[in-house]
Design a binder for these strands. Structure first.
Lengths: 347, 347
DNA sequence: TTGTAGGCGTTATCAG
DNA sequence: CTGATAACGCCTACAA
């Protein structure tokens, strides 16, 4: 009925078409596809042949509508433009793939209004579960998740003051540890290049960690210059330029991530400022970039793959009605390379 | 009816719930959402309030089923692990966003069997149109696209021997031009680090371009050493190491992309081989990485953003039943940086 | 401008 | 083991 099957009928075949060709009911075709064990070998063969012949593929919308399950998870990351989330996402996807579930990725450009929109889109699209980055988002966003009871996990963070299920590392602690190393090298005049801290708890926590370390070493906020910059090499470079014009000039510039740090290094090179002899620079994330730049970037190594894999497992569990257990804290470690050196002796 | 609305009813709200709360029919709610202009301001206000109050979001499956349109496009890229496709994809997404359509991204790991699977998944999921990279894929993949008449465009390539709609640049021509520059510098012993050329027409075309240039300069295949390597900095580094052990040692190493080239440069540095004094290295793509490494990478600048934006427009057109016009050829240009120098004077 | 009713392609619940 | 048949949630003529 749905497709009259003229000689050159190009309509998309439906369950019913397959049923007709195989001489069975639509219900039987559906069963062949979903629980093959429950149908005779003979009829199944017949049905499968028809399926192939027609090039039939089930209509996802209809299936979702009827089954209330899509076998699709979603992930919303702040950006695809740099590699920060790529590796973790890859691991996430690989793990999901093993369980036959498809991943849909959206990016929010670090804007929580857009993220809310993306959550809506993915949820509406039937995502069975969601991977989110960081805790910062609108109440509406959380409202949607709760009302529809969408299993979700927050990754890339481990904030003990938050109760939501998460897997990640303590950004504050990691940045504090790195800053302590910088201070131990004798630096007393710092610079910070950070992403916008509004709507970005990772950036905020990292900055806080830095401040805590300074406090422990008896430094005040007078001894640090802060520049906020969008996530890109170019803006990292520009921010570094601004910092170098400050008085007194920082002897160590900590960057909120490797991308900004790479920009800083390139600007230093362009300006003839030697790293680390005149200025030390540090990053955060330990993406490939950190190893490639010259000098290599001392940075915080983040367990991207474990995070992705772990997040997938939590979500898989959750969406099967299982108990995911408590949030998981992974550890980030300092990765030493050449960009961090002792403070220049004078000034 | 669908949700009885007890005091703590957590059921997902449907169109009907909204209609009840607003005291109108479901049809009116639907209209408010889809063609707001056709309904009274007063009722629309009432409806929208109900929508907000209930946190209503339309069910995608149902909507797709009824409207036969999802306002979703898909893109399948070979990898998310490096930035090669990121910028283009971002532009693609931005353009689509302007038109209210959502982008779903999948990655194929450079494997056409996986790509076919992803095409299936996206098509089944109702993607109205698809962005694909390169021409190489299974007949089945194209079969699906044709049978279901899914508008699609092939990007990152411009192969005049292919009739399929595409937007991109001529990989062969670009690599040939770059190679000519290398040869003009006097290099007569070359190395090529390329991605696997099976199932990857970009890599194949680039290699062919290189060979053409060599032929024009009267060189034979004896004068080039080729190593295939997976897309990663580490494998680029390793491949470069292998090349440097060849006899005679190449004086110029051309890489199929910037990621491999970055690896090559880092290995050169590690081995104490000066670039470009002892060996010249070139990349392809001109991603940020190319600017960051030291020395800067002479590479082929690819118009990623135009490609992404253009692809979106073609697809938008196509999915609205319009005529997209012919394939579009963009031009890739050589971006000069320091990594390419004259051939060392002796041997 | 708004409401009514039918249908979109599957799955799931029943009988048979 | 198989076949009707009723949802599933929304859109869209068509009618009022």
């Amino acid at each position: 009925m749905s497709s009259e099957r003229f000689s050159s009928d190009i309509a998309v075949p439906t369950l019913e078409d397959v049923a007709n060709m195989a001489g069975v009911s639509a219900a039987t075709v559906s069963r062949c596809l979903n629980s093959p064990g429950v149908v005779t070998d003979r009829t199944r063969d017949r049905v499968m042949r028809a399926v192939r012949e027609l090039g039939y593929a089930p209509n996802f919308g209809a299936r979702a509508l009827a089954a209330k399950r899509t076998n699709t998870f979603g992930a919303i990351i702040p950006t695809m433009e740099n590699a920060i989330f790529a590796r973790g996402l890859q691991a996430f996807q690989e793990e999901l793939g093993k369980h036959g579930i498809t991943l849909l990725v959206a990016s929010s450009s670090y804007r929580s209004d857009l993220e809310e929109e993306q959550i809506r889109a993915l949820v509406a699209r039937g995502a069975d579960a969601l991977l989110l980055i960081g805790h910062d988002r609108t109440d509406e966003a959380y409202g949607i998740l709760e009302r529809r009871q969408i299993p979700h996990v927050v990754a890339w963070v481990c904030d003990h003051s938050q109760s939501r299920l998460s897997i990640g590392f303590d950004n504050r602690k990691a940045m504090k540890a790195l800053t302590c190393e910088v201070l131990k090298k004798g630096h007393r005049s710092l610079g910070l290049i950070t992403a916008d801290r509004i709507e970005n708890d990772r950036a905020r926590e990292r900055a806080e960690g830095l401040f805590e370390a300074m406090a422990e070493f008896g430094l005040t906020m007078d001894e640090i210059r802060i520049v906020e910059a969008p996530y890109s090499i170019a803006s990292g470079a520009q921010a570094f330029g601004e910092l170098m014009r400050e008085e007194p000039r920082p002897t160590a510039v900590l960057c909120g991530n490797d991308v900004l740090a790479a920009g800083a290094i390139s600007m230093a090179k362009k300006s003839g400022i030697r790293v680390p002899e005149e200025v030390s620079i540090t990053g955060f994330d330990d993406i490939e970039l950190a190893e490639i730049v010259t000098p290599g970037l001392t940075t915080v190594h983040v367990p991207h793959r474990e995070m992705g894999r772990g997040a997938a497992r939590l979500l898989l569990n959750l969406s099967n009605g299982g108990d995911p257990g408590p949030s998981i804290e992974l550890t980030a470690t300092i990765k030493w390379r050449a960009s961090l050196g002792p403070a220049p002796s004078k000034s």
